[in-house]
Design a protein around this nucleic acid. Structure first.
Lengths: 218, 218
DNA sequence: AACGGAACCCCCCAAATGGGGGGGCATGAT
DNA sequence: ATCATGCCCCCCCATTTGGGGGGTTCCGTT
């Protein structure tokens, strides 16, 4: 099994995980020509991934967060909790900053964007393999914001702010909210500014969208 | 220009459009081995696509709906309105059935899922080229459903109004919507006024609330 | 007793929005 | 030929909103 008498003594053994077969194909196609990287498997859902991880013990997994059966975050958690010796490069579609944050906190070693030139992803693989944590400037912001305001944004909203947000999501105007809560309109605006900052948005409709997507229950 | 003295007389000339470079790479990689298909260009945003369409006049475009600058729907609309002789195979990530419906109504010739085995996509290219309309069973349902579902109010919204409303619900501003749909901001306001009247609301956030409660998808 | 945080109120100003009017063009039905 | 509809664009104007200051209480911690 051990190959040591070779110019490129040890190849980076990676597993690819993405539900889009075309992305797998793209990765395979570009990694094919990299002499120091070896694709040992490619899977399209979390279940397969966990199996492969334990049988192949790869150096690294290139991981999409969105996958059937078991999603990327769950896989990442599993890897960390079981102390698997596998580095994790998250391959994201950039659109869900919430997931990126979560992945970072779960200990992802790096991030690459599907919209980036493939060569960047290849470079990222090498970087991560050499114990560097890497992620694109864009993703940096999603992640950094977390330092100040911690991940569960919802918890960070004060009770009053949550009330206000709920009413905004109903479609009420500032004046109506003020009346409903028996406070001044300026106060509503004050709360809203704080809410926007905490949620990372800048309009009431964005806030409403956030509400319905992240913390609605009905 | 005309090559007719060859076993495969005329190759299908396709343009690939997807903001994910890895997907482009994947497509290119598999189409490379198809003797009857020729990739004449690959672009990552709508602006490039429209340029390429007019210079290369390809037989077909494999089109992702989500793209920067000008999104896939807008491109499709452009193609149809200008009577370009280009067939359109929509390559979707499966998650936005709303867009799939819209694409179907705009006259998309076929649909392929990114999660499908790449060979299916290749087959779809050939099918569409031979004047067949093709789409996976899954997508079929999104499209069909709309016939019956016909909620009284939603049906009153014109296709364009539905597009606008969906973007409002995402939290976009008028200016952003205008850019996304390639129309003027005043036009967006015009559509919005009509939407408000039809829905019986008077602010965008109310409209967003209506969207999430009555016509939301997932 | 001093501190920070939450909730409350007020000012100002630029930008976005809502609401009304006026057109235009194309398509498809009557 | 006419009409209705959808879609597009432009004008004007009042209101709402977003973002920046400045404050005051009250409460729980330290």
């Amino acid at each position: 099994m051990s190959r040591k008498a070779h110019p490129h003594q040890k190849r980076i053994r990676v597993v690819l995980a993405d539900d889009h077969e075309l992305v797998l194909e793209g990765l395979r196609s570009i990694l094919q020509h990299e002499p120091d990287i070896e694709v040992v498997a490619a899977v399209t859902d979390g279940e397969q991934l966990l199996r492969v991880l334990q049988t192949h013990r790869p150096d690294m997994v290139v991981l999409d967060l969105r996958m059937p059966k078991i999603d990327g975050l769950a896989c990442l958690r599993f890897i960390r909790e079981h102390g698997l010796p596998t580095r994790v490069l998250v391959l994201t579609a950039f659109d869900d900053r919430e997931s990126v944050r979560a992945a970072f906190e779960l200990g992802a070693d790096g991030f690459a964007l599907k919209t980036d030139p493939p060569q960047l992803t290849v470079a990222a693989i090498r970087e991560v393999y050499h114990d560097r944590i890497v992620f694109p400037r864009l993703a940096a912001r999603w992640v950094i914001q977390r330092q100040e305001q911690a991940s569960p944004l919802k918890e960070r909203l004060s009770p009053r702010e949550q009330e206000v947000l709920a009413l905004v999501a109903e479609g009420l105007t500032n004046a109506q909210i003020a009346q409903r809560l028996m406070i001044g309109e300026e106060t509503v605006k004050f709360h809203l500014r704080n809410i926007y900052q905490k949620l990372g948005v800048s309009t009431r409709t964005e806030a409403a969208a956030y509400y319905y997507r992240h913390l609605a229950k009905s």
